[in-house]
Structure formats: structure tokens, C-alpha cells
């Protein structure tokens, strides 16, 4: 479970977060949809414990992130928007490195790494250096390193940006499997189709505020629109910064 309450944050004169609150439940895929600059990345960075806010708090499974950032991060798996792989490490070493950072070293680390490699069918590239990997292969390695410690909560920041169709399909299937296994999945996106295709819950963010939250159907109802796209436009007030 992931929750932020009443987050307010300024960067200079700019209000990045304005009393932002939302909750992502276990066993659900929750999407944060908002235009570029709406405060999605800032909110996630607060959730990771990288940024401090002026008001409010963030919680990962009842752990206050500001008070115990390391404990909170142990329960998080993060899939970043840009895949920064260590090109001189093999895929196996890269995944084992992240396992080690979560305390899985020695045989436990090897076993966890081997298990996720098999689960994501990475065996054929596991012992190759990641330099020269295709975008799809990179995505799988990043996914494996985020899930190697079997986190209860999984956060994705703009996950399908720059991915090809096959990689996107694999990723979506993984997310559905994790949801069905009872994990909490939160992902931020500015791509409407993606949110509509995957999410059980949608949180619409604009100018640092939650402007609406609910299932896709509820959002349509709330705005009196039949199409999800029209509902978003009605909620945000413009279609600027949103990709169809």
C-alpha cells in the first residue's frame, strides 16, 4: 500500500505540489495521469524519500518515509523512466547488484537473481554485458532488477516511454500478474491510452493537485462524458501535455 497525504512543495515561487493526497491499494493497478509538469515525478520522489515536503507525509505499508526512508525503500521496487544500466556489468551482475542493495547477498542473492531471470526468460542474455542490449532487453533487465527482492509495492515512472510494442505487452502482462498476486502497483504516465488499458484506479493530477480519482468508468460518469479522452480533457481543462 502506498499513500501520500496533504503534500505541499514549492520550488522557488512555483507550487509543485498543492495539498496532494492519494492512495494506491494492494491488488490494484493505480495510475497517476497528468500532463508534463503536473507534479508526478515530484510526488514519486517524495514517496522514495528523496525530497522533503513542507506539509504532509508519505507512507509505504504504514512506514513513514520521512522517518524511516531505508525501511520504506526496502518495500519498494522502482522501474525508472530512463534505463541507466551499467554497461560493463552482465545482466546477471546488474540484477544481483540490486539484490545485494536490498540485503540479498551470497547464495540468497544468487538464488533470487536466478529466479527472476527464469521468470522473465532472460537466460540467453544473462551472462552478456548489457552494452549493446536492445531496448526490449534493457527493459527486461530493469524490470528484473526492480523485482528481484520481491517488493510488495511496485512504482513505475513513465514506464512505456520509448518502448516497442512487444516490450510494452510484456510489461503490461507482468503488471497484471503482480496485481493478481496481491501487489500494489503505482504508475505515472502522461499517455492516456496506457492508463485506460491497465488501471483499476486512476488519479488525475494537474498543477500539483488531484483533480479527480476513481475507476475509468467513474471518471466518465463524473464528467458526463462517454469517452475517457473527453473525460480527461474536461477534468484538466485543456488537453495540453497529454498524449492520446
Amino acid at each position: 500500500m502506498l499513500e501520500v497525504r496533504q503534500l505541499t512543495k514549492h520550488f522557488g515561487d512555483i507550487k509543485a505540489l498543492d495539498q496532494l493526497s492519494f492512495r494506491a491499494e494492494d491488488g490494484q493497478i493505480t495510475g497517476i495521469l497528468g500532463p508534463n509538469g503536473a507534479g508526478k515525478t515530484t510526488a514519486l520522489r517524495v514517496l522514495y524519500g528523496l525530497l522533503k515536503t513542507e506539509t504532509g507525509s508519505a507512507q509505504v505499508d504504514d512506514i513513514d518515509v520521512a522517518k524511516e526512508p531505508l525501511a520504506a525503500r526496502r518495500k519498494l521496487g522502482v522501474f525508472p523512466d530512463k534505463f541507466g544500466l551499467y554497461e560493463r556489468l552482465t545482466a546477471f551482475e546488474q540484477i544481483a547488484y540490486f539484490a545485494g542493495l536490498h540485503g540479498l547477498t551470497g547464495n540468497a542473492g544468487k538464488a533470487a537473481t536466478q529466479a527472476i531471470i527464469e521468470k522473465l526468460s532472460l537466460q540467453d542474455i544473462a551472462h552478456r554485458r548489457t552494452q549493446g542490449f536492445s531496448q526490449g532487453q534493457r527493459m527486461k533487465v530493469v524490470l528484473a532488477q526492480a523485482l528481484v527482492h520481491q517488493p510488495q509495492n511496485f512504482v513505475l515512472d513513465e514506464p512505456t516511454r520509448g518502448l516497442d510494442v512487444m516490450s510494452t505487452r510484456i510489461l503490461r502482462q507482468q503488471l497484471r500478474d503482480l496485481r493478481d498476486a496481491g501487489h500494489c502497483i503505482l504508475f505515472s504516465s502522461h499517455v492516456m491510452q496506457e492508463v485506460a488499458a491497465l488501471c483499476d484506479q486512476v488519479i488525475v493530477v494537474a498543477q500539483g493537485r488531484v483533480v479527480a480519482a476513481g475507476t475509468p468508468e467513474q471518471l466518465c460518469e463524473q464528467t458526463g462524458q462517454t469517452q475517457l479522452e473527453e473525460a480527461f480533457v474536461a477534468l484538466i481543462g485543456s488537453d495540453e501535455g497529454i498524449a492520446a
Binding site: P80, G84, L101
Partner: peptide
């Protein structure tokens, strides 16, 4: 280099100091 390759942020959000 690590920052430019986008690897640093991901490391900073792992449970390490």
C-alpha cells in the same frame, strides 16, 4: 558519468545511505 547515464537516481532510491 553515472548521473548522465541516469543510473545515479535509481541507486539513490535503493535502501542505502
Amino acid at each position: 558519468g553515472e548521473r548522465e547515464r541516469n543510473a545515479l537516481e535509481l541507486i539513490l532510491i535503493q535502501p542505502i545511505t
